[in-house]
């Protein structure tokens, strides 16, 4: 998203303008919903989490500081923490200790159907699975490099090498998307 559009959304939300919510949903909704789905693997729960998170963003907009983070980063943090809170509640309810270290994600029942999984796979099929696992461990599961290396059962050095390569792949995909957009816009 361009900084101008991002700024426009932030201004609309600050003015309690309903269009702010509409633009927020259109531009960030799918990525934030993807975050909730990735962590919960539960569509119904993710529907509630997305609603909660977007309302938190709307109601707490005065605490957003553009000097500290980009707007998407701030929205992502709120959504991820809302998801983690949900998972903790479920975990507490079920009393299942499937905890990774003392601060992380608790896998629960996978309710995504095959179509959903295929759709997810198509979107990220340009990335090698070993890169997806290192990116997931950092961007979604919030592990330190040491914890992630331990979790993935690979040496720390290998993890760091894979992380660098994964980020490099990500940048290459970004360039590809930019070129594709440019081609579509000019054709």
């Amino acid at each position: 998203m361009t900084p101008i559009l991002e700024q426009h959304i932030v201004e609309l939300i600050k003015q309690n303008d309903q269009r702010g919510m509409s633009l927020l949903y259109e531009h960030y909704g799918p990525a934030l919903y993807g975050c909730a789905l990735k962590l919960t693997k539960d569509k119904d729960a993710s529907n509630d989490i997305l609603q909660d998170a977007l309302l938190k963003i709307w109601n707490n907009n005065s605490s957003y500081n553009p000097k500290k983070a980009k707007f998407f980063t701030w929205c992502y943090g709120i959504t991820r923490n809302t998801t983690i809170d949900y998972l903790r509640k479920v975990q507490k309810k079920q009393s299942k200790e499937i905890q990774i270290k003392d601060r992380d994600v608790y896998p629960i029942e996978d309710t995504l159907n095959q179509d959903d999984k295929e759709s997810l796979k198509r979107q990220i099929n340009t990335l090698d699975t070993k890169y997806i696992s290192v990116l997931d461990s950092v961007f979604y599961k919030g592990m330190t490099h040491m914890e992630a290396a331990d979790y993935l059962d690979i040496p720390l050095g290998t993890f760091k090498t894979r992380m660098r390569a994964a980020l490099s792949e990500l940048r290459a995909i970004n360039k590809g998307i930019t070129v594709l957009l440019w081609f579509l816009m000019t054709s």
């Binding site: 998203m1 990525a31 979107q123």
Partner: peptide
């Protein structure tokens, strides 16, 4: 920027 990109690669329409 990388987080934004990766989150969008995993985006699902709600």
């Amino acid at each position: 920027d990388e987080l934004y990109l990766y989150a969008n690669l995993n985006a699902v329409t709600p």
